[in-house]
Design a protein around this nucleic acid. Structure first.
Lengths: 189, 189
DNA sequence: GTCTATACAGGGATAGAC
DNA sequence: GTCTATCCCTGTATAGAC
């Protein structure tokens, strides 16, 4: 992914800028400046802003798959894996406080822009959703696995949005604890 | 609020457009077209886009206070009032599916824009937060009242974000039920 | 593959007539 | 209070030299 080619540097810079500033609010000049290339050179690599967005989403999909693979490698226990997801809001709290969740804020922005890439961005959510569903199914909650997966996703989005607004780490810690308790209760049920 | 003056029509139109299209993505031309006035006339009423945003936020603060007053008038039972808040995600589901939560999406966008009005937008959240806290306190949960208030806010934001991404009404219904159950358990605790 | 130069549209904002 | 005309900047995108 990060092989250092100009194209890849563009994707990396755009990824970060789309996250920190928003897609609409990020200009080619912003990205060009970050990569230290001219705006003209830009169009050799990407014909339009839409194409950069596509590449960024592909990058994020790949990053998400890597993250999931790392969680799977770290523990065979589905509950551990779900906890790893829950704990993202702590792991990434610094960024979340300033910019929200990268997935949630992008899908929300694209929805308002009525952007064609909205479905592709939603695919990142779906990646998490399906994987969480599989973990709940492995825990023996097949019937409610998808509902539980969505519940965990909703938790992370809610915490991210309010963490961004209030920057209250105690709040994040409490909500994470709540989810851990809920998960423990689910296992013994 | 809606006295029909041009200024007020501008605020109304901007309010809706900022919600449906986003603040950054809404131009003066968009608003002028919606109100059917010229762009020039615009600047008689508002000197800058920032000022319109301020007016929109003030409008939303007033609307929020009205909504809260209506809930208070509808029932003296704090649990009923909290349920009224929880049920927003059903009441407004059509808009939420398309545009997300008006409060959450605005604060998130302003955070990324590093916009000066971010704190004012957060005040809408605070209005709900403080009111919910008072309801939980009235239920006898003074010590955890603010934490519970934040929990309910997080619920609504999480549901709104995922409702926007997946447009799954069954999911919304399930999450609302979960919150009602949680609230009932809290009352008997 | 990278650059400069440039075209062109759109957006914020102002001036001044009515 | 509302309009038209206009300025200036930014943003996307293209052409063509190196």
């Amino acid at each position: 992914m990060t092989d250092g080619t100009t194209r890849d540097q563009i994707v990396q810079a755009a990824d970060r800028l789309f996250y920190t500033q928003g897609y609409e609010n990020t200009s080619f000049a912003d990205i060009a400046e970050a990569v230290r290339i001219s705006r003209g050179n830009f169009y050799y690599h990407f014909k339009s802003k839409h194409r950069i967005l596509d590449a960024v989403i592909d990058e994020r999909l790949a990053d998400t798959r890597d993250m999931i693979a790392a969680w799977e490698a770290a523990s065979p226990d589905p509950a551990d894996r779900i906890r790893a997801y829950i704990d993202i809001v702590i792991t990434n709290r610094a960024d979340i406080e300033r910019f929200g969740c990268p997935v949630g804020t992008l899908t929300t922005e694209l929805a308002k822009l009525n952007h064609a890439a909205q479905q592709e961005a939603n695919a990142i959510f779906t990646l998490f959703r399906d994987w969480l569903r599989d973990q709940f199914a492995a825990l023996g909650h097949g019937a409610d696995a998808d509902a539980h997966a969505m519940h965990v996703l909703a938790f992370s989005q809610g915490v991210a949005t309010l963490s961004n607004a209030f920057r209250d780490r105690d709040f994040v810690g409490r909500e994470v604890q709540r989810m851990h308790d809920w998960l423990d209760a689910l296992k013994t049920a």
